[in-house]
Amino acid sequence: MNIFRLVGDLSHLLAIIILLLKIWKTRSCAGISGKSQILFAVVYTTRYLDLLTTYVSAYNTVMKFVFIVASYATVYLMYVKFRATYDHNHDTFRIEFLLVPCFILSLLINHEFTVLEVMWTFSIYLESVAILPQLFLVSKTGEAESITSHYLFALGSYRALYLLNWVYRYMAEDHYELIAIVSGVVQTVLYCDFFYLYITKVLKGKKLQLPA
């Protein structure tokens, strides 16, 4: 463990908590893409299949458990409890166009052709594009509540910090995982224009308005 990965994991945890609190407190999931939340639930489910079979550390097990429970709780809140506030008119991204290519790619490019490893690889590829429906929704509505932009900033920062973690691990431990690194770069690049808007607008107290 290193500071980059620890802060990255905490930023990830913060993002998930911000989202759950936003939906629970405002009793609304307006401006949030349910499709992205479904993809995240799939990401954690397929990545943490070894939750009960492989023990890395108490921290690792607890965090995996929290991510899985929180992602399913968010999907439940959006599609069941606060279903009436779900913006299905704008949340129209076809997630099958993400699921199928990621699955095929995970069968072609992986470290080891076993169920666990292919599922882990699939989750890595899927996570890199899982935010697309959310970014698509924000671009369609042209704006985002500030709490939603804080959620996106924390979520985007987590993988950006993981990039630093991988640089550190390569230098300090001669350890690198090319599949995770390439996907992590793609994932972080997808946030770039959002990061720009967040830093130039939201941090100045303005609303996140996308140029029409």
Binding site: R5, D50, V56, N60, M63, E177
Partner: peptide, 10 residues
């Protein structure tokens, strides 16, 4: 370098 057999990252 050896491929990590278990993924120790979240």
């Amino acid at each position: 370098h050896p491929e990590p057999d278990t993924h120790d990252e979240l």
